[in-house]
Simulated scan of single mutants.
Amino acid sequence: MAKSMGEGPGMPSQRQLRVGELVRKELSDIFTRGQLSDPDLDGVIITIPEVRMTPDLRLATCLVMPLGGRNADKVVKALNRSAKFFRGQVSRKLTMKYMPDFRFILDTRFDDDDRIGTLLMQPEVKRDLDAIAEDETDDRDD
């Protein structure tokens, strides 16, 4: 089956995106119901913004963030310890040829965005960005 025009190298296929979203929803339901087997996860509210699937759908990388970011490393370690439990729970809800293994990592995208925003607001960088914007404006006027 040929790839669609919107997919390039390194871009996930529609199937990867669809399965990732199904897995994310099921994990989210498990966390919402409080069906957690690890005492380190008791009372912790966990958000799963994204699940990335490998092309063969055998590994699901789950980006997670505990509410407020408190004890993030401890929560990620506890989730990885309980990965087989979650795999079993999700396999009861989804019908797939192979149930993927789960790997949990901390979602740092928002922190990265804040860091980049802070860097862009530094006086040296802002001065350079303003100069580039002025050059582009002058080029349009000509």
Score class of each variant (00 low, 15 high):
4 S>E: 06
8 G>N: 12
8 G>M: 13
9 P>F: 00
12 P>N: 02
13 S>G: 04
15 R>C: 02
15 R>I: 03
15 R>E: 09
16 Q>E: 15
16 Q>P: 07
17 L>C: 11
19 V>K: 02
19 V>I: 12
19 V>T: 05
22 L>D: 06
24 R>D: 12
25 K>E: 15
30 I>Q: 12
32 T>I: 10
33 R>F: 03
33 R>T: 09
35 Q>F: 06
35 Q>Y: 05
36 L>W: 00
36 L>H: 00
37 S>V: 14
37 S>M: 13
37 S>R: 04
38 D>Y: 01
43 G>L: 00
46 I>T: 14
47 T>S: 10
51 V>S: 03
52 R>W: 02
52 R>E: 10
53 M>H: 05
54 T>K: 13
54 T>S: 11
55 P>C: 06
59 L>H: 07
63 L>D: 13
65 M>Q: 15
69 G>E: 08
70 R>N: 09
70 R>W: 01
70 R>H: 11
70 R>C: 02
72 A>N: 11
73 D>P: 12
75 V>Q: 00
75 V>I: 11
76 V>T: 06
76 V>W: 14
77 K>M: 13
77 K>E: 11
77 K>R: 15
77 K>H: 03
80 N>K: 01
80 N>D: 02
84 K>L: 10
85 F>R: 10
85 F>Y: 15
87 R>M: 13
89 Q>K: 14
89 Q>P: 01
90 V>F: 07
90 V>C: 07
91 S>Y: 11
93 K>E: 15
93 K>N: 13
94 L>K: 01
95 T>M: 13
96 M>C: 07
97 K>P: 02
97 K>H: 02
98 Y>S: 13
101 D>R: 03
102 F>N: 00
102 F>G: 00
102 F>M: 02
103 R>F: 09
104 F>K: 00
104 F>G: 03
104 F>M: 13
105 I>R: 10
106 L>G: 06
106 L>F: 14
107 D>F: 05
107 D>P: 00
107 D>V: 07
107 D>R: 10
108 T>C: 02
109 R>V: 05
109 R>D: 05
109 R>H: 11
110 F>G: 06
112 D>G: 09
113 D>C: 04
115 R>Y: 12
117 G>Y: 07
117 G>H: 14
118 T>D: 09
118 T>H: 11
118 T>V: 01
119 L>F: 12
120 L>K: 12
120 L>W: 05
123 P>I: 11
123 P>K: 10
124 E>F: 15
124 E>V: 07
124 E>N: 10
125 V>I: 15
125 V>M: 05
125 V>C: 05
126 K>L: 09
126 K>I: 03
130 D>G: 06
131 A>N: 11
133 A>K: 15
136 E>Y: 08
136 E>I: 09
138 D>F: 02
139 D>T: 14
139 D>P: 06
139 D>C: 02
139 D>G: 04
140 R>V: 10
141 D>I: 13
141 D>V: 12
141 D>F: 04
